[in-house]
Design a protein around this nucleic acid. Structure first.
Length: 461
DNA sequence: ACCGTATGCTCC
DNA sequence: ATTCCGC
DNA sequence: GCGGAATGAGCATACGGT
């Protein structure tokens, strides 16, 4: 039996309404209306489309279509020369409007069978799948076909989705609010949806669960090893005293390393590494995979830390982020593993052998981490200081800066210092070197060089 | 097969 | 990541 | 204060000319 679907036209009408308002509340109402008439079978796809995507952010689905290729695709669909299309773009500043204009001039555009959410999604995925020799030609033909079958208004949004320029002003939080209104009757329940989203990083999945089973459905979204969890972020302060003001119940400070934040999932010998944006970057770090495989005394675990470039031949002299970035590659990885050794500094643990630690306070998580990590030259915990003495903390900060690190991170030790996936809250506060330098405004400060592992040498004039 | 160029996409 | 903007 | 959007440097991929 055929799964139910939604006319793409319906989605396009919603997009037009969203474009016509800047009010967040109104957007929530418009989207809630859309969700109520969307069959649950395709509600995940609708969510991705509203965000201008085809899948969850962490899925590696890319159209690989830019302005140039799009101009050519519109040219083919409309039968006009590409020069004319590009000229129109200079006038209008948006290929969506260009496509709409030239296809409207065509007369019979889109008179064939109507596009649906599912059919458009399948065909765009087909575009994304094209790779290798001749792939650009194949992408062009698929896109041009799709545009020919679209009405001019549909073409406007198809083009924007493909180019990643949809910009409706409705992001993830607006979507979650609208889902709460549509399926639980009230925005009040949005935090429940947000929590589920932060555990799975996939609005589409949250939408499907809540559309099919309401709030109970959300309980089915749990931490799964191998599925990335949205990362917690820190607030910022300019002055050390502010940390004391914001965290009266006590805190610990940790060095903030200048590297790449990673979330490592271990299931037996299987290890997967996710970037801050939840991209799967396992292939970039075979050495980190090995360190996790060997260095965690747990069968299953999800841990978080910072990967930092080392000065070759050392295990505690760090290089700046820029150096680490040449490790961001697909080929020649083994060569760069030798040339740019890295160290993983762990600072959190979210899951161990069947137990979620998300709701455990920070001191407990840190204790578990200390228990399961086998320290080595390539794997360690972040340097940490538990103190209430401002001078001691300042010295800890200064040492971090001297070593070329970014600064320090203060972490609340209060009972409510749980891991707030996806949130930026005051239970983590960063204090970075730039701000402290700004305070030294009676001096002119000149950076004269960045030496490996020793940070910037500074001269006061 | 080998180059430079154009295009698209990621991280802080 | 930081920054700006509108609600 | 929050949510949404914009932003620059370096690598990967495909193309097109030799």
């Amino acid at each position: 039996m055929a799964a139910r679907d939604l006319p793409f036209r319906d989605l396009v009408e919603t997009f037009e309404k969203l474009e016509a308002t800047t009010s967040g509340n109104e957007m929530v109402e418009i989207l809630a209306g859309l969700f109520r008439r969307t069959p649950p079978e395709v509600i995940d796809l609708v969510c991705y489309f509203v965000q201008g995507d085809l899948a969850a952010e962490y899925e590696d689905v890319n159209l690989q279509i830019g302005e140039r290729l799009m101009a050519e695709a519109i040219a083919r669909a409309s039968g006009r020369p590409r020069e004319e299309i590009e000229k129109l773009y200079i006038e209008k500043g948006d290929y969506g409007l260009v496509a709409e204009a030239v296809l409207a001039g065509q007369g019979g555009a889109g008179s064939g069978d109507a596009l649906t959410v599912r059919s458009v999604h399948e065909r765009l995925l087909e575009v994304a799948r094209q790779a290798g020799v001749g792939s650009q030609e194949a992408k062009l033909n698929l896109l041009a076909d799709l545009l020919r079958q679209a009405t001019p208004r549909e073409a406007r949004y198809l083009v924007r989705i493909a180019l990643g320029t949809l910009r409706l002003g409705a992001g993830t939080m607006t979507l979650l609010n609208a889902l709460a209104v549509a399926f639980t009757g009230s925005k009040r329940n949005k935090p429940r949806l947000e929590r589920a989203y932060n555990l799975c990083g996939d609005v589409g999945l949250v939408a499907k669960k809540v559309a099919e089973k309401g709030l109970d459905g959300l309980a089915e979204i749990k931490i799964q090893v191998g599925h990335p969890i949205k990362m917690m972020a820190a607030q910022r302060v300019q002055r050390l005293e502010e940390i004391f003001e914001k965290m009266p119940d006590g805190f610990a400070v940790e060095w903030k390393y200048d590297g790449e934040r990673v979330q490592c999932h271990k299931a037996g010998d299987e290890v997967v590494i996710f970037s801050r944006n939840l991209e799967n970057i396992t292939h970039q770090y075979p050495d980190v995979v090995e360190a996790i495989r060997q260095g965690l005394a747990a069968r299953e675990a999800i841990v978080e830390g910072e990967v930092v470039a080392l000065v070759p031949g050392t295990d505690d002299q760090f290089q700046p982020f820029q150096v680490l970035m040449s490790r961001r590659r697909k080929y020649d990885v083994e060569r760069y593993v030798k040339e740019i050794p890295v160290k993983l500094l762990l600072f959190d643990v979210l899951y161990v052998d069947g137990r979620s630690l998300i709701d455990a306070p920070y001191p407990e998580r840190r204790a578990v981490l200390e228990r399961i990590v086998r320290r080595s030259p390539r794997l360690d915990l972040t340097a940490r200081l538990v103190s209430r003495d401002p001078e001691e903390i300042e010295a800890f900060f200064e040492e971090a800066v001297e070593r070329g690190l970014e600064g320090i991170l203060a972490k609340s030790c209060a009972p409510d210092s749980v891991y707030r996936a996806g949130a930026r809250e005051w239970s983590w506060i960063k204090w970075k070197r730039d701000y402290s330098l700004e305070l030294v405004d009676t001096f002119d400060v000149v950076a004269v060089g960045g030496f490996a592992g020793r940070g910037l040498s500074l001269i006061h004039i």
